[in-house]
Design a protein around this nucleic acid. Structure first.
Lengths: 251, 251
DNA sequence: CAGTGTGAATTTGTTCACAGCC
DNA sequence: GGCTGTGAACAAATTCACACTG
């Protein structure tokens, strides 16, 4: 979502909403599972359940792609798999480089979900010279010095950054300079890139923080419920690093 | 998303939009960086730039938390760090269990971003008996059999699932039965959980697929730009798009 | 008649623009 | 003067409900 929309020339493109694009992979996965079980057709209701969305949303999403269903029947699984794959650009091969082969980078290199969707790990790159040559997930790690050459030789347009935060921007700049136009960033930093380069980020600690927020809210509600029963208001100021509270203005 | 919350809880205006909550960790990170550099105050403009959003949005977001800024000056960094932390529930300790100690699980266990934000890895759990006792990130892996006991003993309410897709739902069910109410799911599956349990998912291959979509769109635009010399059929005439749909063409 | 496809209604999120305060 | 805080305008996304069709 943070990914650069905004600058869109007058050319009326095939206006698939961003929210819809983000769900297509979900539908695709559910459809693939059905396909493997040789299910020939699905209704929007069934497929929606499998993908964890509601059926109206799913039908609306599909309507942006075209009319691929049959009224009174549902959707042809194989046909829909093909159409969504095509729409997402998965019918072509996408060579990918992963930069930063630490724990996370290695996990990514080993992740099966990549290869199975047309993404091919073209190279693993790390700044540590002692890593060079070591095989990870069956691929020899290469040194950062080779970065530009690797990207050029393999026609890579998608890069994955799994370096420490401090190195991320630098790596990003080099990737962009080398011609990469899509970046998946796992480093906990905001990357700045020129127009025309897409960045998506995956941030583990942000997801946990969002969960913590909701978790806290739940706890607060329980407490409120109890308090309501007992008719007593619990103070919250006994917890946490109170000494650290900057006394600026009282709420 | 939340269970039918129609009215605001009586206490205070606790109606923070989901989109805002999702950005708070971003602001917090930018603020923490400023704090470490001993910057005393920031304007919405500066902070917004650091967090990669625009300033109007940031001010609006903060307005949901309260009036923590000073007109003509900006925001007090330390004070805001505290307020956002409190809002997110990060002033308390959140014990977390990670289930599935493969490549990804190990990466998560080693990930520094957890510990630094009040998240404490209380236990690592794996189904493989040969893993039991092995230290990962300084913590001995425990067997799945112990799952319920671990959660109970440590008062864990947040679980991270990093197992293969096939095991995820089963693990999820056990976590929920054991009392966990927030789950961060890395397995490429839709988890079904009872009401009151929050699930967030991180899906590596979905992110790549979204990038591929945009990447493809860029390539298409280049082609379109080239073809602009030649007459191009304007879309958007009738109902459905497409006259270029293959009749029936499965994978 | 079951189930898609879609306008219209609603909700949620973003941006604008400026009043109000320091 | 500079910058926050916020109503009001705008845009995006979701949901509803039903006409239509195989």
């Amino acid at each position: 979502m943070a990914t650069g929309r905004t600058h869109r020339p007058a050319t009326r493109s095939r206006g698939i909403p961003e929210a819809t694009v983000a769900r297509l992979p979900l539908y695709l996965r559910a459809l693939t599972a059905l396909s493997e079980r040789s299910v020939p057709t699905v209704s929007s209701e069934e497929l929606a359940a499998a993908a964890g969305v509601n059926s109206a949303k799913l039908r609306k999403d599909f309507s942006y792609l075209g009319s691929y269903g049959t009224r009174g029947v549902g959707y042809d699984v194989e046909y829909l798999v093909y159409q969504i794959s095509r729409e997402l650009g998965l019918t072509q091969d996408w060579p990918v480089v992963i930069v930063g082969i630490g724990n996370l980078g290695a996990a990514l290199a080993n992740y099966g979900g990549f290869a199975s969707r047309g993404f091919r790990v073209a190279a693993l790159i790390d700044a540590d010279p002692t890593m060079a040559g070591k095989p990870v997930a069956g691929i020899a790690v290469q040194h950062t010095d080779e970065l530009e050459k690797i990207i050029d030789d393999n026609g890579v347009s998608i890069g994955v950054i799994a370096t420490p935060a401090g190195a991320a921007q630098q790596v990003c700049d080099r990737l962009v300079a080398a011609g990469i136009t899509s970046i998946l960033n796992f480093a906990p930093t905001v990357l700045s890139v020129p127009d025309g380069v897409d960045v998506r980020k995956v941030d583990l600690s942000i997801e946990l923080q969002i969960l913590a927020f909701h978790e806290q809210r739940k706890a607060g509600e329980e407490a409120a419920a109890e308090a309501a029963a007992v008719a007593q208001v619990p103070r919250e100021s006994g917890k946490g690093p109170d000494g650290d509270v900057p006394a600026v203005m009282p709420a």
